Computed example of a mutant assay.
Amino acid sequence: MKVTFLGTGTSQGVPVIGCACQVCSSVDYRDKRLRVSVHLQVNSKSIIIDAGPDFRQQVLRERIKTLDALVFTHEHKDHTAGLDDIRAYNFSQNKDMPIYAEERVLKQLKQEFSYIFADFKYPGIPQVQLHPITNAPFEVEGVPFIPVRVKHYKLPVFGYRIGDFTYITDANFISEEEKDKVRGSKVIVLNALREEPHISHFSLQQAIDLLQELKPERAYLTHISHLLGQHREVEPRLPDFIRLAYDGLQLEV
């Protein structure tokens, strides 16, 4: 499986336009963080987890010519706002786009993109197939997914384990039962918003502590805010098996 980080950033802590902070003014490409999303190439299947406001820019940058399905972690706009841009894939692939999410998230998508689901469908709007999921294993176009229930403050969110790869974003609590689903993963991706504690995201130290408990071979931090600082300053302070992810980073798992 090839994993490509489409985005590793967040809307949290983003400065105003024209900000000259160290991250905004950095010439290091690793500090250019679009909203968090990841692309999975599993054999012949192309799957994206979350499609935020930067979705179109991300898939163009990575030249993702085909897309077999979208999987959502939760309903927040920085993870769903790019849904409209699947229409290009509808046109080029001549088929509806399968969407996988839990019922609550699908309901929110129906509200925010009501024109997609209207009785009268305007020509050219996105075409979708909705697939409700629960906290039980499921398949996306034949690829096995294991959902991992985490909490984003009080909001239930799904992370996902696909083979030896586990992807968790927007979390600050994972129960022991759900940790057991993650154990044994060779690669874990986990959110780490900033140094200071946050009401709904793991801080850097909390993420490190959890990864040291779960003991993957490799781990990558994502959903990084400007407040965490520059890549070149943060990464040298991490344990050897943990790295900061960056937009465009590719892994073989």
Rank of each mutant, 00 (worst) to 15 (best):
F117P: 02
T73S: 15
S92F: 05
K95G: 11
N90K: 00
M97T: 07
D84E: 13
T80P: 08
Y122T: 08
T66R: 09
A118R: 08
L106C: 04
D85V: 11
K95F: 08
N94F: 11
A81T: 08
T80R: 08
G82I: 10
P132F: 01
P126R: 02
H74L: 00
N94P: 03
P132D: 05
N94R: 15
G124I: 05
L109A: 04
P98K: 05
Q93L: 10
A101I: 01
P98S: 01
R63K: 15
A88E: 13
D84G: 10
H74P: 04
Y89P: 01
F91N: 09
G124E: 11
I86L: 06
Q108M: 08
I64L: 14
F113G: 09
D68Q: 00
A88M: 10
P98H: 04
K121L: 13
N90Q: 07
D119F: 11
N90S: 02
H76D: 14
A101Y: 03
G82K: 09
Q93V: 05
N135S: 13
P126T: 03
L106N: 02
A101D: 00
R104P: 05
L70Y: 02
D96H: 13
D84Y: 15
I125T: 11
F117L: 05
P98D: 08
F117I: 00
V105C: 15
H79L: 07
N94G: 11
T66D: 09
V105K: 01
V105R: 06
L70Q: 03
T80E: 06
F113T: 00
R63M: 09
V128Q: 07
L130P: 04
Q93Y: 08
I86G: 08
L83K: 04
E75S: 15
F117W: 03
V71Q: 04
N135W: 07
I125W: 03
N135L: 12
I125S: 06
K77P: 04
A118T: 07
L109C: 09
Y115L: 10
D85R: 14
P132L: 02
K95S: 13
L130Y: 07
V71K: 03
L67M: 08
Q127S: 15
D84M: 14
A81S: 12
R104G: 12
H79K: 09
H76L: 12
N135Q: 09
K65V: 12
Q93C: 07
T80D: 12
T73H: 12
Y122W: 04
F113C: 07
K95E: 14
R104S: 14
H76K: 15
L130K: 03
D96A: 15
Q111T: 07
F120Q: 07
Q127H: 11
N135E: 13
Y100C: 00
T134A: 15
V128G: 06
F72Y: 14
K95D: 02
L106A: 05
A118Q: 13
D78K: 10
S114I: 05
L83C: 09
V128Y: 10
T80Y: 04
R87Q: 08
F113R: 02
G82Y: 10
D85H: 15
Q129A: 13
E103Q: 13
L109W: 10
P126Q: 03
K95H: 11
V105G: 03
P132A: 07
E75H: 15
Q93E: 12
H79M: 08
